[in-house]
């Protein structure tokens, strides 16, 4: 332990304060300069947020008039950035509708056309690349996803001895992502679609950690979409362009399906492996499949998430 130094007699009072005043000013000035220098990267910041966006309320708290203003703001921003006037709408769920997806594993050939149709429809970032659908190449006789190949690239598909399993948001009835979100930026709509308010998400990525299906994607940087590829038919909870630092994922093409159209991935599928519709309508194709196909599975059924996405086989 060190021994105590005897207190040195303080120099005359006024002198100390003048000298220390000058010294302190010098320290403060150089400190402020160093701080300013360290913050220099902020000068590159552009279009990060706006007063309107910063103060915007949660989706569920916006009145119709406020929502219109928000949609106008989004249209304005898109036009500014892409020089295309988009049509931005907020489509509401339809009564008596619960969307489900059925995917025929016997038919899927692993061509990944669905992946790219999805990117084009939903204005995903091309650089860095964001894709909602991940197609797994699986060896026959196993559903163990640890044996899946994610990056297969043969000259032609399908390959002998394998089957293909596309995975996207499973639109769970009991979604772990919704449960963990600290700010209720993601929730389940009455028609079964789990949506994200891109203007409310804080980017903590807890939902991404919670999802058992690797369905969520984060905007690690500012997304970039070539102007000529932009889809101008947009919706608030769907395919409008996202900002840096927020989460996104498959929303069953909400801007199409809430108008009675099919999702983009279904329309493009050359094998007819994808079926989509209203499970509450007994006449629908999906109701027929769920009733009559003898083999169908929900991924990771044991987790209790209860997906609205069913995989089936032709028997």
């Amino acid at each position: 332990m060190s021994d105590q130094k005897p207190p040195s007699a303080p120099p005359p009072f006024g002198e100390v304060s003048r000298r220390s005043f000058l010294r302190n000013s010098a320290i403060l000035a150089s400190g402020a300069a160093a701080l300013a220098a360290s913050l220099a990267p902020l000068r590159e910041l552009s279009n990060y947020t706006s007063v309107e966006l910063f103060l915007q309320k949660h989706y569920k708290e916006l009145t119709p008039a406020e929502m219109q203003k928000v949609l106008d703001r989004i249209a304005r921003e898109v036009e500014q950035q892409y020089h295309i006037r988009p049509r931005v709408r907020d489509y509401k769920p339809m009564d008596g509708v619960e969307f489900v997806y059925c995917l025929n594993l016997t038919r899927c050939i692993g061509c990944r056309k669905c992946v790219h149709a999805c990117v084009a429809e939903n204005n995903q970032s091309r650089n860095p690349e964001i894709q909602y659908i991940r197609v797994l190449k699986m060896p026959h006789g196993s559903l163990d996803m640890e044996r899946a190949d994610h990056n297969y690239a043969p000259a032609s598909v399908p390959e002998k001895g394998f089957f293909y399993m596309p995975v996207q948001c499973q639109q769970c009835k009991n979604p772990p992502c919704v449960k963990v979100c600290p700010v209720k930026a993601t929730w389940q709509e009455p028609d079964g679609i789990t949506v994200i308010d891109y203007d409310w998400c804080i980017g903590c990525r807890y939902c991404e950690a919670a999802c058992p299906y690797f369905a969520r994607r984060f905007n690690w940087t500012k997304p970039s979409i070539p102007k000529e590829r932009l889809n101008p038919e947009m919706s608030y909870l769907g395919n409008r362009p996202r900002r840096q630092g927020v989460m996104e994922k498959c929303h069953f093409c909400i801007q199409r399906t809430r108008q009675g159209k099919y999702p983009a991935c279904l329309e493009v599928c050359p094998a007819g492996a994808r079926k989509f519709g209203n499970a509450l309508d007994p006449e629908s194709e999906v109701a027929y499949i769920l009733k009559n196909k003898r083999v169908f599975i929900q991924l990771k059924e044991e987790l209790g998430t209860s997906p609205r996405f069913f995989y089936y086989f032709d028997v």
């Binding site: 963990v180 600290p182 700010v183 209720k184 409310w200 804080i202 980017g203 903590c204 905007n219 927020v246």
Partner: peptide, 24 residues
């Protein structure tokens, strides 16, 4: 946080706090 500017969404009362649902 991906959106530090939206930090206030986490403040009980003025934000939208998912309590007790979210462990965060």
């Amino acid at each position: 946080l991906g959106r530090p500017d939206r930090f206030w969404h986490l403040i009980p009362g003025i934000g939208k706090f998912n309590f007790p649902g979210s462990m965060l």
